[in-house]
């Protein structure tokens, strides 16, 4: 964008960029450096030695996988229906779904709390998976519908004329052609489910059901507020996310951007 021709201009721009980036690096340095304070690697050994530490990762993975599976299936079916099939009063249904976009999850707490207890779902994975999926679906549908809308109608008509019913159209046209947008949906659903704090906080009470976002809280109790070990646990829980991002940089950036922009 900017044209900087002189050498001094280039140096100045580089220095400016570095100065702007440093504050973003600072908390990460604090996190890593703090986790080595005092006992050094001993902090990590202590954290990894806590029985059931990997259980947190497993629970987060189970919940994220459940949310992704539900969101993917439901979104693909609905987006195809909205974009290419005949539905009376289609826009009404669509707007009913869109209204859910603005919903803060804290609004769901009390009704879900009493309902899950009545249904015996309280303190199970479902009590977190279902509301999280319900909150992600409207957006995923909006995004995917627009994408499928962009696919030419003629293609679907041709398939129909050749004798393919709508199920075949779904399996052989929609699923393969929506892969790019499905990847975006997958990433922002993954981040949303993996990083969620409020739902597990309220709905998962037993120790062996809790997710990684509850780890810091757990260690505040476990190590009676020993900051270095809490930071070590923070680093350990952050590593999978950072590694996943570094491996799939482009996908993460596209997915989260798609998640932010309509």
């Amino acid at each position: 964008m900017f044209e900087v021709r002189t050498r001094w201009g280039k140096v100045l721009l580089q220095v400016l960029a570095t100065l702007f980036v440093l504050p973003f690096l600072f908390p990460l340095i604090v996190m890593v450096q703090g986790s080595f304070a005092g006992a050094g690697w001993g902090n990590y050994r202590a954290v990894l030695g806590v029985p059931g530490f990997f259980r947190f990762f497993l629970n987060s993975a189970i919940i994220a996988a459940g949310v992704i599976a539900i969101v993917y299936v439901v979104t693909m079916l609905a987006s195809y229906g909205f974009a290419k099939l005949h539905i009376r009063a289609r826009e009404v249904y669509f707007w009913m779904l869109l209204v859910c976009l603005t919903l803060p999850e804290v609004v769901l707490l009390t009704p879900l709390f009493s309902t899950t207890q009545q249904l015996g779902l309280y303190d199970t994975y479902w009590s977190v998976i279902l509301p999280l999926a319900a909150l992600q679906v409207p957006f995923a549908v909006l995004l995917t519908r627009n994408f499928i809308h962009g696919l030419p109608d003629e293609m679907f008509e041709a398939a129909r004329v050749d004798g393919a019913n709508s199920m075949r159209g779904f399996l052989y046209l929609v699923l393969p052609l929506t892969r790019p947008i499905a990847a975006a949906v997958l990433i922002f659903t993954l981040i949303g489910a993996w990083n969620d704090y409020l739902m597990p906080l309220v709905f998962l009470q037993s120790q062996d059901m809790q997710t990684i976002t509850l780890v810091p809280q757990f260690f505040v109790g476990e190590f009676s507020n020993d900051q270095t070990k809490i930071l070590a646990s923070a680093v350990l829980t952050a590593i999978p996310e950072v590694v996943a991002y570094l491996c799939l940089q482009g996908l993460f950036e596209r997915g989260l951007s798609a998640g932010a922009i309509k």
Binding site: P27, M31, Y197, I212, T213, P216, A234, A238
Partner: peptide, 8 residues
């Protein structure tokens, strides 16, 4: 996750 960064 903000929840993980909070102690930091």
């Amino acid at each position: 996750a903000p929840a993980i960064m909070a102690p930091v």
